[in-house]
Design a protein around this nucleic acid. Sequence first.
RNA 1: GGUGGCGUAGUUCAGUUGGUUAGAAUAUCGGCCUGUCACGCCGAGGGUCGCGAGUUCGAGUCUCGUCGUCACCGCCA
Length: 585
Amino acid sequence: MYRTHTCGELRLEHQGIEVTLAGWVQRKRELGGMTFVDLRDRYGITQLVFDEKASAELNDKLKKLGREFVIQATGHVRERSSKNDHLPTGDIEMDVADLKVLSPSAVPPFTIEDESDGGDDIRMKYRYLDLRRNPVRENLVLRSKMAHAIRSYLNDQEFIETETPVLIKSTPEGARDFVVPSRMNEGQFYALPQSPQVFKQLLMVAGFDRYYQIVKCFRDEDLRADRQPEFTQIDCEMAFVEQEDVLNTFEGLTKHLFKAIKNVDVADFPRMSYADAMINYGSDKPDIRFDMLIKDLTDVVKGHQFSVFDDAEFIGAICAEGCADYTRKQLDALTNWVKRPQIGAKGMVYLKCNADGTFKSSVDKFYSEDELQKWASACGAKAGDLILLLSGEKASMLDALGALRLEMGKQLGLMDKNTFKPLWVVDFPLLEWDEETQRHYAMHHPFTAPKPEDIALLDTAPGKVRANAYDLVINGVEIGGGSVRIYDSELQSRMFDLLGFTKEEAQAQFGFLMSAFKYGAPPHAGIAFGFDRLVSLFAGLDSIRDVIAFPKNNAGRDVMIDSPSPIAQNQLDELNLKVVLKEKK
RNA sequence: GGUGGCGUAGUUCAGUUGGUUAGAAUAUCGGCCUGUCACGCCGAGGGUCGCGAGUUCGAGUCUCGUCGUCACCGCCA
């Protein structure tokens, strides 16, 4: 036995007893005749005291101790003569009688403290050291607790946790697959799952009725702060349910997590159609912690010889409360911000609704005070507010206004990390048109059921068909999404047809699913939450990297183990692979 | 694929208009110190200014390229 107690549990009540602790040297404070050592493990810190007069042997060992040495110390617990209110163990210390170095440490490249001196790069390279730090470890403890709470909630609701295979089959739709060559099947490849989609549907056909899994998924696409090539989903599917049943079940799960983990009671989640989200928020994942809705001013501002507006398909605005005192410099900065290629606006028009009731606009030579008053009324603006207008092609301006809205929300401090506003976005379009390939793609996935009342549109106006598909959005983050599935092989076959699959292709890719549907498939629906995003939201973090023990960087590299990496020629030979690198231009 | 930020001591950063020997903090090492807890005080060592070209009498500083890293756009059913 290496220890009798952890470094976080000794208190005054333990005084007088002999204990053994083991852990890492956090810090050494030498005061000449005596030395203090802070001993750390994941449970806390306990102060060890060494008296110079005790023994020469102990002094020698003590002298050699450095930061992050792993040691074992034995001695009696005693009350401190000067206590430390900042530590739970601050009333006591160990009078060390015996010390053993279990493992020495090189000088770590950054300080292992709550506020480390290390930057992201170096901490990622030495992730195992970064994980010793309290804030990083706490994120992973939170993750563990949330996983536990999810399992417990779903188990109580009769969900069956079922594993599905990781080596599966590549499909053309959706994200790029990570592929794995098969040695035993020459020239053939497995794919890693983008999600266990078809397997969970087959489990419904199998009569499992309620399935869930906290499962790794893989997508070979470019990364972001909230996107990793491998990420974790809370993946679920239910049979004999309608959309409403799924929403209620997972709204319940989400509320349970907020209560159990953060002791927060959240109100019932509002529902918003995809169409409304796009028009009012310029986004399919609206942040409803604040309003500042987008207003369509097209009809209000046209027809006044201001050609920029007159020639535009759409003119939209947001109203920033209390910002009429923005300076020229601030407005110029915002204008430049919306003109960046990422936002893509050509320019920005402002209208200051001054406190004295007058108006000041960048285009007021085209518009009378009365006209400007109409703008203000249409935006619901009051004295002291600032209206920002963008004009251009409708879809891209809604997008830009949505981004501008978030930027203003950020600048005005309207996005409090401790406020949680979940909502369901529903009625997504079933299909989206792709200009490049001149065909429709499934917006969610090809197994999503159209709304029954829209099925007639499948032939006439497929772009207008709405799906029984839904997303859970919290604070502008897409936490999860799902849909009611097609369970009729005829309709499924028609969908593949719409998506441009030939009968043969559909049969080759998804024949197993359509066969399964011929043997009594129950109506079913499902949902998947992005677990990493959910944890980072609960932790108040912007990057999911912070809630993953060993994450990858922007380029999909693990800088700690230095992967990916080339493989040996004999491995390539065995797999019948030949590497041909493209010439760099 | 694209846009932008960053790259200087182990680490985090400063570095003026292009001009003498590139600084600070912290970490490390040595010395002093018996109640510290971010201990304190004194001292020391530590630099291919990411890399490569170019401009210049002279480049950490300017230009181009390249590599690394971060954020975003495209992409992510």
